[in-house]
Design a protein around this nucleic acid. Structure first.
Length: 852
RNA sequence: GCGGGCGUGAUGGAAUGGUAGACAUAUCAGACUUAAAAUCUGAAGGGGAUUUCCCCGUGUGGGUUCGAGUCCCACCGCCCGCACCA
């Protein structure tokens, strides 16, 4: 008898795989290729249990695909630029490069303990000059193609991180990383023209069949296409160079309900009026303060200011409508001006009631007017309503029909144009930070903005920088900025802005295909390996990272770096859930919550107690957080139980797309099970080689069913169900009295089916039972169809749809035979009590239903 | 407000329209043991009769169907995304 000791077998097999080069990706003309990629980690210093889940999910795919005869690419690297490194430099005086390299070394060692089937020869970090230098050359190519431009723009300024944020990085008016209230600033910035691709990025979502519908919907909402009408409203008296105000609306059908025309506080006309009207300027200043802060949202206070200007209604020159400035109108969307229809828009109604402006119904429900004070009548656009005063002659029609009729009418009269608007804005990539890829341009007094010459790339980050002054260290460097203009040769200054780290993660998947290529990617390698066949990561990247990558792949195609087919870089996407853990809390004398480490809590009968007997409150399945003391350290788990146990557990309890709660009991159960499998292998190993037994056929049948079920489970990310089948089969095998030969075959198959999940244990069993070579190189077992067919089948018998009994019939029994046997069944005879059944339903091989 | 998803034992969760609760956790009982742990065997949706019988049961109420956890409608609850977006 031997003991299951992961601490000896796991390093042993990891070494064997390394020495054999088992996981090196090689182009093979005779095999289909398969590229599986998990989102690369930020080198924060330590692996957390969420990484273990993410990378185990991918590893199952990679190992399974290898076994099914694919040439597999499964690389790993580091998303290594970013703010935390600079924060560490400021706080602890460590250079960002040192800090990052130490973290990478540390995490790589932790990765090694997990036994992942990664090709480490392709590893790179985004802060490697070899990587970001190529990124700079992509920048120059994009610039030349007109995919990048510079503009003066109001940007979101994060006063804590001292950097510009993309719109997408502002959450509730706060910086996504720092949480600081975002301020407005005007700076000259570089932008990717992602908005040129709005339509394309939206419509191509339809082709992404193996992406979660949810992610596609989130992207579609983010791109935010809307169809509407743009039209001009004439001012009764021209002012400040305006003789009309352009308005965009998605509800042109409500045109006859116009109550006022609203301007954004940032509208050019507002700005012009501000200069001469102090009262107006004060009101507008007040509106800007409110902005989109959470407080403003809570109070929902509508603020307005009557400019005194008047416009005429496009359809009736005699109808004068007042022009107001309103705080809820955004300059960034549409034209920054709206017409308000209070009868059919709650927000407009609130405003009109507050400022005593008219409310005009333009349609009513078919069953009569709805008169509820303070509530706007807003039926779904698809609902049919009665039109009260529609100029195009509509009487009963849906909102959708009315919108189209209005647009047609207005266009035919030359009063407006159908317009498509997108919410998606260009991606600002400039960051006023040190730890990022330098933007390779030079500012020359005579030539202006000049791109760096390609032969001068890479523009390397200087290592001799200090962090004692706030702001960008590159600005304070004594010499780095000073260069000669590539165009005229006179002294000039380097741009000190660096690139958003989302740029780094927008093309790394392509670089993995050819990490040593002279250019950004090698066309031949890229054409072979691209696309990523299966991409796996967190739902938190559903919008930003994935949208930017989709844009980048298109831009790389336009600049000749990637084939057309690679424009959608990720064929299939899987978003995994979080690993959660219970929080154990009590309250101190002042009523404040105190969080206890799981190791300090004893669990009994579903309740938790501290050493002194105090009962703790258990909050199940909470997000892991250091401050809540509920973080699980994967290294401790590997030390205690081994990597296979950690891998088995994160796969077993929940479907991969859902959150899984880490429990000590669950981890122990996983370990116990692996022990059981080990003992089973041991027992079979000690059997007499010639031993005969009973139940060989039964065991073999169960074995082939398990092959079938585990295979389909892995194919469909149903890992938890696949593992349940493996448990069941282990139980069968454990009780089996079959011959040695059959039991050995069964345990070998068990090992093969477990190999994607628990590769070390599987490898060890394989070796013990005399398997040839490595199990990691062995082909996937095939279920024998003949063994899946049963000779007899048990059919449930229902009476009026309720299960009452069951019968055993031959597999190929005819309908008539089944009917005869069913009618002879005791409970059927009893229920019929001599009468004939009204109806008899026989579904061959499935069920019998007797209707009385 | 708009869009999407989900609701099954004490718990995590299984279930191509066809035997609801696989598998696991926690629980209980038994075996082994001086004892405990480990291991093994078994019980277990709820209720009632009380061995082999009956009723109820997948958030609630309807519907389609021979048959619904699964499909349709309405409602309730929870979760996620977006949002003074015209």
């Amino acid at each position: 008898m031997s003991r299951y000791d992961p601490s000896t077998i796991e390093p042993k097999w990891q070494k064997a795989w390394n020495e054999a080069g088992t996981f090196l990706a090689k182009m093979s003309p005779d095999k289909p290729k398969y590229y599986v990629l998990e989102m690369f980690p930020y080198p924060s210093g330590n692996l957390h249990i969420g990484h273990v889940r993410n990378y185990t999910l991918g590893d199952v795919v990679a190992r399974y695909k290898k076994a099914t005869g694919h040439a597999v690419l499964h690389p790993m690297g580091w998303d290594a630029f970013g703010l935390p490194a600079e924060n560490a430099a400021i706080k602890r005086g460590i250079h960002p490069d040192t800090w990052t390299r130490q973290n990478i070394a540390n995490m790589k060692a932790q990765f090694a303990t997990l036994g992942l089937s990664l090709d480490w020869t392709r590893e790179f970090a985004s802060c490697d000059v070899a990587y970001y230098g190529r990124q700079q050359s992509l920048f120059l190519d994009f610039l030349e193609k007109g995919l990048i431009y510079r503009k003066n723009a109001v940007v979101n300024w994060d006063p804590v991180d001292m950097t510009v944020l993309a719109n997408e990085q502002v959450i509730d008016g706060k910086g996504w990383r720092s949480g600081a209230e975002v301020e407005r600033r005007e700076l000259t910035q570089w932008f990717f023209k992602i908005s040129d691709f709005s339509e394309e990025l939206l419509s191509a979502l339809d082709g992404l069949d193996d992406w979660p519908a949810k992610v596609k919907l989130m992207q579609a909402n983010w791109i935010g296409k809307s169809r509407g009408l743009q039209m001009s409203w004439k001012l009764t008296a021209p002012t400040h160079g305006f003789d009309a105000i352009d308005v965009y609306t998605t509800r042109p059908d409500t045109l006859m309900g116009a109550s006022f025309l609203g301007l954004s506080p940032d509208h050019p006309l507002t700005k012009a009026l501000e200069a001469e009207n102090p009262d107006l300027a004060a009101a507008v200043a007040e509106m800007r303060k409110g902005g989109t802060s959470e407080e403003a949202l809570e109070t929902g206070e509508k603020l307005g200011f009557d400019t005194g200007l008047r416009v005429t209604h496009p359809l009736n020159p005699d109808w004068e409508i007042p022009v107001w400035i309103a705080n809820f109108i955004l300059m960034d969307y549409g034209t920054g001006a709206i017409f308000a229809c209070p009868a059919h828009d709650q927000r407009d109604l609130d405003f009109c009631l507050k400022y005593d402006l008219p409310v005009i119904d333009t349609f009513e429900a078919l069953d009569g007017p709805e008169s509820v004070d303070g509530d706007a009548f807003v039926p779904p656009k698809s609902e049919k309503v009665r039109w009260l005063n529609h100029f195009a002659g509509l009487t009963e029609a849906t909102g959708e029909e009315a919108i189209e009729a209005t647009i047609d009418f207005m266009e035919s009269q030359g009063l407006g144009q159908a317009t498509t608007q997108f919410r998606l804005r260009d991606w600002g990539l400039s960051r006023q930070r040190y730890w990022g890829a330098p933007i390779p341009v030079i500012h020359c007094d005579t030539c202006g903005v000049v791109p760096e010459k390609k032969e001068n790339l890479p523009v390397e980050l200087p290592m001799d920088v200090t962090f004692d002054i706030p702001g960008n260290p590159l600005d304070h460097h004594p010499s780095w900025r000073n260069v000669d203009c590539p165009a005229c040769g006179t002294p000039a200054l380097r741009e000190t802005d660096t690139m958003d780290t989302f740029v780094d993660s927008s093309w790394y998947y392509a670089r993995y295909t050819s990490p040593n290529a002279e250019g950004p990617v090698d066309r031949e390698e890229a054409e072979y390996w691209m696309n990523v066949d299966q991409y796996i990561g967190g739902i938190e990247h559903a919008i930003l990272h994935l949208l930017y990558s989709r844009f980048f792949a298109r831009a790389m195609h336009l600049t000749g770096h990637l084939p057309r087919d690679a424009q959608e870089p990720f064929n299939a996407l899987f978003t995994q859930g979080m690993v959660t853990h219970a929080i154990y809390q009590t309250r101190d004398d002042a009523g404040r919550l105190v969080y206890h480490y799981p190791s300090d809590v004893e669990l009994r009968d579903g309740k938790g107690y501290l050493a002194d007997g105090t009962e703790v409150e258990i909050i199940p399945s909470a997000k892991m957080s250091k401050s809540k003391n509920n973080v699980v350290d994967p290294l401790a788990i590997v030390d205690q139980f081994g990597a296979d146990t950690a891998r088995w557990f994160v796969l077993s309890d929940s479907p991969p797309e859902r959150d899984v709660e880490w429990t000590a009991a669950g981890a122990e159960a996983a370990f116990k099970h692996l022990n059981r499998v080990w003992m089973l292998c041991d027992r079979i190993g000690e059997m007499d080689r010639n031993a005969q037994g009973d139940g060989d056929e039964f065991l073999l049948r169960e074995m082939h069913k398990t092959i079938r079920d585990v295979t389909s489970g892995i194919e469909s990310f149903g890992y938890n169900a696949a593992i349940a089948k493996l448990y069941a089969f282990t139980n069968v095998l454990q009780k089996s009295k079959a011959s040695y030969a059959t039991q050995r075959e069964a345990v070998m198959i068990l090992a093969q089916l477990m190999a994607p999940m628990t590769p070390h244990l599987a490898e060890d069993i394989w070796a013990h039972q005399g398997g040839k070579g490595l199990i990691a190189e062995a082909p996937w077992p095939k279920a024998d169809a003949a063994m899946l067919v049963e000779n007899t089948v048990t059919l449930p018998i229902q009476i009026n749809g309720k299960r009452k009994s069951e019968i055993v019939v031959a597999k190929d029994a005819s309908k008539e035979e089944v009917e005869k046997i069913a009618l002879a069944d005791e409970s059927v005879i009893k229920a019929l009590a001599g009468a004939a059944p009204k109806k008899l339903i026989v579904v061959p091989g499935r069920i019998v239903n007797v209707v009385i």
